[in-house]
Amino acid sequence: MGTIKKGILGGVSGKVGTIVGVHWKSSYYIRAHAAKVSNPRTPKQQEQRGKFATVFGFLKTIKPFIRIGYKEFTEEKSAYNAAMSYMLKKVVINSEKEITIDFNRVLVSTGSLMPVFEGTATASEGKIFFNWKDNSGMGNAEDTDITMVLAYNKDKGMAVYDTEAGSRQDEAAELMIPDEWQDDELIAYLSFRSADGSSVANSVRMTILS
């Protein structure tokens, strides 16, 4: 129980109702008492925390890529927060056993630029080889658009990427992958950004052939 020093206009020591009084260096201070959450770990809260942790674990491995890939959405929030928002709404799967990511719906980049046309990916000799058809002149696609490639290792939770792997007109790019990834499950994405960096294409997931 708190006490009031020197009458009703004096300092407060201890807890009085919803405030807490503190005496320090001959002065009295009051602060609001922290409210208690009746059930801070409801199933809904635990589910949301699980989703957040799952998406965070993925995004932290490709954060520099995301900064470029979500550049068109940085007026009201950061690129990272825009990516987090999208992933939480569209990509996370909550099954009875675990919370996972639907990598088919993942967008490591998104925007208004014309995306890749007829892309493929092949793994060989420690590299992933990306190929596509040059669709420059279709919509806002230009031959100078810069190629961005990414590979994510589902088994190790790691990623490698290159945000300057060539240009749209090259119709090909390659990405080095670590030797120890040879037997792991990999996921690849291919995208473009304009030469001036103002616009970005939706990434396309590539099925990796061997």
Rank of each mutant, 00 (worst) to 15 (best):
K89C: 11
V160W: 06
K15G: 09
A121Q: 03
D170Y: 07
S85V: 12
E75R: 10
K133T: 15
K51D: 10
T100I: 09
S199L: 11
T163H: 03
I101W: 03
F52K: 03
T54P: 05
M148Q: 04
Q48K: 08
K25C: 08
A123P: 06
L107M: 11
P40V: 09
K71G: 06
A151K: 01
S38H: 10
I19E: 06
V91N: 03
G14V: 04
D134P: 05
A79K: 01
M138K: 11
V149R: 00
I177K: 02
T74G: 04
L190Q: 01
G10K: 00
K15I: 15
M1D: 12
V108A: 00
D134W: 01
V160K: 03
F129G: 01
V91P: 05
N131C: 08
A188D: 12
I4T: 07
V55C: 06
V16L: 04
K97Y: 14
I30H: 01
N202W: 09
I128H: 00
L88N: 06
V116D: 02
F192Q: 00
M206N: 02
E96Y: 08
H23I: 15
F65Q: 00
Q182K: 15
V108L: 01
V108M: 00
S26G: 07
R49F: 09
Y70D: 05
K90C: 14
T144I: 12
V92G: 02
A141K: 00
K6H: 10
T42Q: 05
K63H: 14
D143A: 10
I68Q: 02
D155Q: 10
K60R: 14
V37I: 13
A201V: 10
G57A: 06
G197F: 08
G50W: 02
P178V: 09
I146H: 01
E142A: 10
Y28W: 09
I128P: 00
Q182F: 15
A201K: 02
D134I: 03
T144F: 07
D179R: 10
D170E: 13
Y29D: 04
L107K: 04
L175F: 13
S124Y: 09
A188E: 11
L59N: 03
Q45E: 12
S210L: 11
E180R: 09
Q48D: 12
T54Y: 04
I208M: 02
S124E: 14
K6P: 02
E72G: 04
F65A: 00
E164A: 08
K156Q: 13
A172D: 14
A151L: 04
L190T: 02
S199E: 14
K156P: 07
D179H: 12
K5L: 13
D143K: 10
P40C: 05
S210A: 12
D143P: 06
V92C: 05
D143W: 04
S136L: 09
F117K: 03
T163L: 07
F58E: 06
E72R: 01
S85E: 15
F103A: 05
E180S: 13
P43Y: 04
V20M: 04
R193H: 11
E180K: 12
R105K: 15
V55D: 04
